[in-house]
Design a protein around this nucleic acid. Structure first.
Lengths: 200, 200, 200, 200
DNA sequence: GATGAATGAGAATTCATTCAT
DNA sequence: TATGAATGAATTCTCATTCAT
């Protein structure tokens, strides 16, 4: 299966090049020839690995979301509020390089994209993430580690949206890392205080 | 005597048509002729009111942001935590029609847009909104209506991002209004609990 | 018939404006609205006086050629070589303002112009001018005032072309008046020497 | 392996097609698609060889002027009046095909053309040609082969303009070759007589 | 007559995709 | 498999002309 390995590696290399180009020029402004040049290939060669610009972009997005899921989806429910909060902090921590990809997906997931399959994929992801957070919060509530006033399910989905807000603002507006970290700290401090059952 | 037209009204009507078309097809896929048809005009007529597609979009965005500012920027600092929270609730309440505009601006503000003047405009807006929230929080803190553990300035900016997250998720993923309201309720409940000085 | 007088005057005024605009921007780049503005009229008004841009240009050209004919066509045959030469000098003497019109007609008479009626009109003009010069030369030859080695008819046409060359170069390349006058002097000196029967 | 094409040859072929189309319809009326069709190519292909219609035209003009220069610029000063005159005759002799290009350049060099770089190029050419003739005339004068009454420098420039007049009239007004040759003969006869020092 | 808003045919140019080599 | 020349559909914007007022 060496050919398959090559093919996969080539696809990966092309996607890497595509991401760079998309970051630099934006999806719509990026030409396939730019991607080819960046990848050190000829234009036509791209089509041996991807049927179209759209399919290429879909593959790029898929990879992106696999990573996102890995970071945001906690494997195991937190056993304490602190643990839950720290899990969020970890999820929200990512490098500057990765932050630069955000605008790309911001653009690609918009309605501009021919198929709205992406939009739905992302929608589903946040739905799932919200449910996941909901379950964890529910678990914490059961253990008395979370104020009873909260509705875990709804709060979980809201949390997912709010965290995404933080992430997006970093990526879209180029918030410096230091500033972003301070924002995350503030938000998590607020969350902890608000979630705490201390004075139910 | 020539036909007498209310230039401003015509611009408004064209922008209305443009928004509809952009909502339906996305900014990039929308052709000027689509906008013209929707507005019941000929292609060329659009150019009597806007120099280019880009300028038209800029005008659209400007109007959008004027409205956004009106809704989000509290005129006066809240005098109590409840008042502050209710202010946020009001800001977060908007109709379904308006929610449909969000993807349009999501697309337009991306790097795809030729001039990044928009991106900067939006960036600036959230910076200002963050500062505004920061001042209000600071005011509340001074009055003892806000837990002392929070840094008003940083939390203000984080709040702006998180609220934007809620709004964007509604608009982008078509969250039904009812569901959205529940999410907002959850979030505001969390905020109130977290901000409360009750047990400093 | 006051209306007719007005109409003619208006046409004249519009043509004047058109000439200015054409001089400044060139025929193709000049828009009807430019002409209207220059004439202090509305676009639509032009069409009350000229059926189209083309007809307007035709009228402009016609006026131009009437003037040209007046200057170049000698009314009476010269009775001496000197008189003939001085007639040419007079024809070749025209103001800077008029020189600025040359490029306009240069452009308009080209094949770009939809109808080639102009081209033919000009062609005919030079044919006639050539014949005219031919007759005068023949007359001089009969009187012994012109070297017998020349063929009046052919030389007449050649003369017309060569004088046009001088005129065109002045207009097209912006030769300063002083320089142009020197060129004309040189050419006429050459003509006189060449035409002289002195040593047949 | 990609198709191998001789880029220079392709450009040449396209220019050839463009010239034909321009001759037939005029520069302004000619569409890029006309040129493409004439060249047996698709519209887009033209843009692989020329960045724009303007650049294509510039290339066409450049080639034209290279040829013109070759024909008109005498390599070596004439050693006798006869030789000088014969040099002019050679320069003025060109085929009918070439005569058909004249209107194209007549149109292109007008003020209609966006950049007036051409206009200046042509202006410069005739300036140089005039100087060149001036020097040769001066040389002849020194040798006593030219009447002392002439100012070589001024006459040189005037000569350039007058010869251009002959050439232009042939091209623009479709003077039949035979007729044109007769005109040239007449003109050269006149020049020789006028330049001759015979009776200073 | 005068106006200028509206029209829409038309043209240059771009770029994803194909395919001969 | 790799190439990059060729393709042509698609889109923005212009401007001569029309016509309701």
């Amino acid at each position: 299966m060496p050919k398959i390995v090559d093919k996969a590696a080539m696809r990966e290399a092309i996607l890497q090049a595509a991401l760079l180009v998309f970051q630099a020029k934006g999806y719509h402004a990026a030409r396939m020839s730019d991607v080819a040049t960046e990848a050190g290939l000829a234009k036509g060669t791209l089509y041996l690995y991807f049927a179209s610009k759209e399919e290429m972009t879909a593959a790029l997005a898929e990879g992106y979301f696999r990573e996102i899921e890995l970071r945001f989806m906690p494997e195991q429910p937190a056993e304490s509020l602190d643990e839950f909060i720290e899990g969020l902090r970890t999820a929200l921590s990512f490098g500057e390089e990765e932050a630069r990809s955000i605008p790309v997906f911001f653009e690609v997931f918009g309605p501009s994209f021919t198929t709205d399959a992406f939009s739905q994929q992302v929608s589903k992801f946040f739905e799932t993430l919200g449910e996941c957070y909901g379950e964890h919060l529910s678990h914490l509530q059961t253990k008395g580690a979370l104020s009873k006033q909260h509705n875990p399910s709804q709060l979980g989905r809201a949390l997912a949206a709010m965290l995404d807000g933080l992430v997006l603002h970093r990526g879209l507006f180029g918030v410096p890392t230091e500033r972003y970290v301070a924002m995350v700290d503030s938000a998590l401090l607020l969350f902890r205080a608000g979630l705490s059952p201390a004075h139910d």
